[in-house]
């Protein structure tokens, strides 16, 4: 096993570079893969991340979320002490990156969260050849095979046509999923205004400023709620069970998440219209990606690590589940796993 990176309580640590990647506690120097709150936490001294990730952290934690922030472009290499770190698109949310670390001998890619499915709101994932690939496994079970997101959006629009007198509330995490849903709905030719909960406003505006075309977006006010029959309203998933949802006309509770693949999960949440749209790689894409990296060793950070490691061993890889604590705690603690 290499000592270029090593799992610690704080997260993955690079002793030679003196930095952590996505640390879950405050540290001196952090490299951040993306802006979801379980990966990007406040309180580090120095932070290295993409410009979009830094901007998202500032939106969430305030401008002073760290002492010193340094922006890195995709493909750009930064030397941290004796180690070279390069950021590559991960296709997860706007600004999300895989971080490739190289000490001149070994190349390790930390994927962060990633997906391979098409997403009009962020740069597509780039497979990087490496010795060790450190993957997530949020949906690392063979039952998770996400359908084409366009089909799921079709379900939403069909329901809207059948129930024009009902408001359609779509639960979606505020960073990434909500904006991707809007973009997908637009791609399907829907051109009416799309309404959003106030909690989605800042990030959605940031996406628009970044040049992502989302059409006519309106924030829902208290007075609007009774009048939104037949409209699409995006909101944080927890808002659907919240007092907030009451004033809408006979709302249909939809939820856009990879977890909706398993019916019991959707039922537990009281979802009426499960939309299987995920910002994580599914089982087939996890396996294809691992193969493309041509890695010899696979480490799995979080999610269904045992199943993915079991599969990797069957194709002759050295595989190791890390069971890092603090990632993928869904929206209770954060909102990464969607």
């Amino acid at each position: 096993m290499t000592t270029l990176l090593t799992p610690t309580r704080e997260g993955l640590y690079c002793p030679a570079g003196g930095f952590y990647i996505d640390p879950v506690r405050p540290v001196d120097r952090a490299l951040i893969t993306h802006g979801h709150s379980d990966h990007a936490r406040a309180g580090h001294r120095a932070v290295l991340a993409t410009r979009d990730t830094l901007a998202i952290m500032a939106l969430r934690y305030g401008e002073n979320f760290c002492e010193s922030a340094q922006a890195v472009a995709y493909g750009e290499s930064v030397n941290v002490n004796s180690v070279e770190a390069t950021f590559h698109p991960a296709g997860h949310v706007l600004g999300s990156a895989q971080i490739c670390v190289w000490d001149g001998k070994r190349r390790i890619v930390v994927s962060g969260d990633y997906k391979r499915a098409e997403d009009p709101t962020c740069a597509p994932f780039e497979p990087i050849r490496c010795d060790v690939f450190i993957s997530e496994a949020t949906f690392g079970l063979p039952v998770f095979r996400h359908p084409d997101a366009r089909r799921e959006v079709g379900k939403l629009l069909a329901s809207l046509a059948l129930f024009p007198e009902r408001a359609h509330l779509v639960g979606a995490y505020s960073l990434g999923k909500a904006q991707r849903m809007i973009a997908l709905i637009r791609q399907a030719g829907y051109d009416r205004p799309i309404w959003i909960h106030g909690a989605l406003e800042k990030i959605t505006e940031y996406y628009q400023q970044a040049g992502i075309e989302l059409g006519d977006i309106r924030k829902v006010t208290a007075q609007d709620r009774p009048n939104l029959a037949g409209e699409i309203i995006l909101c944080p998933p927890s808002s659907i069970q919240d007092v907030w949802s009451r004033k809408f006309p006979d709302p249909v509770a939809a939820f856009a998440s990879g977890w909706m693949r398993v019916r019991a999960r959707a039922r537990q949440r009281g979802v009426e219209l499960p939309l299987i749209v995920s910002d994580h790689a599914d089982w087939d894409d996890l396996r294809a990606t691992i193969r493309e990296t041509q890695c010899e060793e696979l480490w799995v950070t979080h999610g269904e690590a045992d199943a993915l490691a079991h599969w990797a061993a069957t194709i002759g890889l050295k595989a190791m589940p890390l069971h890092l604590v603090g990632y993928g705690d869904e929206e209770e603690a954060s909102e990464a796993a969607a």
Partner: peptide, 24 residues
């Protein structure tokens, strides 16, 4: 058609035979 270990983990997770098989 499937690896028995992965089937077992999947069935545990989904909890319903028809649905597990349909997904797998």
């Amino acid at each position: 058609r499937t690896d028995p270990v992965l089937f077992g983990m999947s069935y545990d997770y989904v909890g319903d035979l028809s649905e597990t098989v349909a997904l797998l």
